[in-house]
Nucleic acid binder design. Sequence first.
DNA 1: TAGATTGTTAATCGATTAACAATC
DNA 2: TAGATTGTTAATCGATTAACAATC
Lengths: 205, 205
Amino acid sequence: MKADKIPDIIVGRLPVYLRALQRMADNGLKTTSSQELGEHVGISAAQIRKDISQFGDFGKQGTGYSIAYLLDKLREILKVDRIWDVALVGAGDMGHALANYQGFENRGFRIAMIFDADSTKVGEKIGEFVVEDAEKIAEKIKSAGIKIAMLTVPASAAQSVADKLIQAGVRAILNYAPISLTVPNNVKVQYIDPSTHLQRMTYYL
Amino acid sequence: MKADKIPDIIVGRLPVYLRALQRMADNGLKTTSSQELGEHVGISAAQIRKDISQFGDFGKQGTGYSIAYLLDKLREILKVDRIWDVALVGAGDMGHALANYQGFENRGFRIAMIFDADSTKVGEKIGEFVVEDAEKIAEKIKSAGIKIAMLTVPASAAQSVADKLIQAGVRAILNYAPISLTVPNNVKVQYIDPSTHLQRMTYYL
DNA sequence: TAGATTGTTAATCGATTAACAATC
DNA sequence: TAGATTGTTAATCGATTAACAATC
């Protein structure tokens, strides 16, 4: 069955399924079951079947799911059956690590430009890119039609940079700055803050 | 009221409250309300009151919460009223960025040792640390009593390194490798995979 | 005191699980 | 055909919200 409005929590699990399936495909596997996929990602088979069935009937009774077919479908659903240009703002250590990161390849993303507000960093070469002046964010992002940005600036600058990005048309922000951003509800934010993630585990130690 | 078993989803929000409160304190604020805190972090006031009240009566009718007091309590609850030694495995770009990251200070963590399996990296100085041979993980982590590790190794090595870490006593893993880990249920894992996080947003573009 | 805001209850809403007919 | 596994339903479980008495 196809539902109209898919809960965020389900959408959030799809990339995890996608990643596991990509790995299975790399290992030469052709089919899998909700049971097997569930064991890989630590989610119940029932939930995986329910999640996937929100988008269509992609499996076959008796044999499970064709990995290649389900990969195609998930990529299409998540709109990563294309390559998205991503802007990176902040050319510090984290920005450098992301700029050199190979893990965006084949996952739907490509860093297209890097900005920094620090004039000593502007002009620096990082891989194939030259760091551009943060003053040019609005102009460059608008003319390139970029919708996705990664933010690796200090917390004190994050909100104002986010505002500028959104103003320029960005609709998805991956925020590495350790601060909650306030954004309009047509803009999505995901947070990566290692300290916060670690603090989610210390409670249980 | 104090509940015995706190849902994971509530524990997961506490670090976000903690971070916002720390910021308020840095800005010189003395008290806040569930309403105000909620606006900062994008969560309803009712939910914040409910979450916090699981652990005790930390607020005052009419005036709200003392920021300093609530900070103390949250740090205590999350067990970050101390400094945890953390092992970092993987001295690539991401490992370097984390080794140089200033954001663990005052959040309860300190990197204590860095490992890599690549013999050309062993001995390298990163900040105040010298990269140690991954062969020594078991021995060093056990003798230091380390419970927390960050994993920035390739996906292909992540599971076997995780197994070694757990064997040596690690109970919390922050995994930067783009792969789901299988761990016993007395071990916690948090995942940081920029591609996965980005894919959670493209659905909505 | 009057106003503000908590902690808590009950109602609502949403997510997960278990079970199984359908069917490959 | 016999065995396996899906998609879906209904039941259960859990989380969020709204409302308000208590009280600072």
